[in-house]
Amino acid sequence: MLEIRNLKATVEKKSILNGLNLHIKPGEVHALMGPNGSGKSTLSNILSGKKGYETSGDVFYENKNLFDLEIEERAHKGLFLAFQYPLEIPGVNNNNFLKTSLNAIRKARGEKELDAIEFLKIIKQKAKDLKFEEKNLNRQLNVGFSGGEKKKNEILQMSILQPKLSILDETDSGLDIDALKIVSDGVNSLRDESKSFLIITHYQRLLNYIKPDFVHVLKNGRIIKSGNSDLAVELENKGYEGIN
């Protein structure tokens, strides 16, 4: 699904990623943990195509060079990023944004675009499953949403778009325990042998709900340790300082 080899990245001469390797196979859930500023969001941005980084190394997505694809082409091919800080877009209706997004992706894949009625049926069901307040569907995109609502909105988008590779950048930060459960349910219900996840988090508690296959520790722009879910527990006890 995704193979990262010796990825290095600099921004304005500051090096952020220093030779990162990661291999995610179809159906796997990987958790990536690391202290603030270790480069987690930088990695998610680079994978999803954000401009402004100088990079070297190779990234293959479904065996093709990821860097050959535009941002939206990556989205069309099933790569999804749940943003650490979802953007507000005034005047754009939340529902309409999601419909535009879904149809853009469907169109790129040669699938039939959904009309308003077909879309509404799907979105209403998903919103219900995620206990997402229906009235928020008709608000302006993320404008005035609470932190938790924004994060739930990302998960709603994910569950509508059904991506092959979902990157969740600290989706759990700032969520109360109920919201955390809902977000986890959203992820778990998508999980199958063909879909993969890269879950970036600070807290072991999310991993109680979403059982990862692998846990990696990112420090100084490199993965310094990988293991199974026990590693998350170890981290919780010892802190990042205690890991070498």
């Binding site: 005034p90 005047g91 790129a108």
Partner: peptide, 27 residues
């Protein structure tokens, strides 16, 4: 740039993204 990136990450090309954001602005 971040708004554009957000829209593009959701599958819109850059022109569709601009159009969406500007239409929101003019709503």
């Amino acid at each position: 740039e971040d708004q554009l990136f957000y829209c593009q990450q959701r599958g819109l090309n850059s022109e569709e993204a601009v159009s969406l954001i500007v239409n929101g602005f003019c709503k």
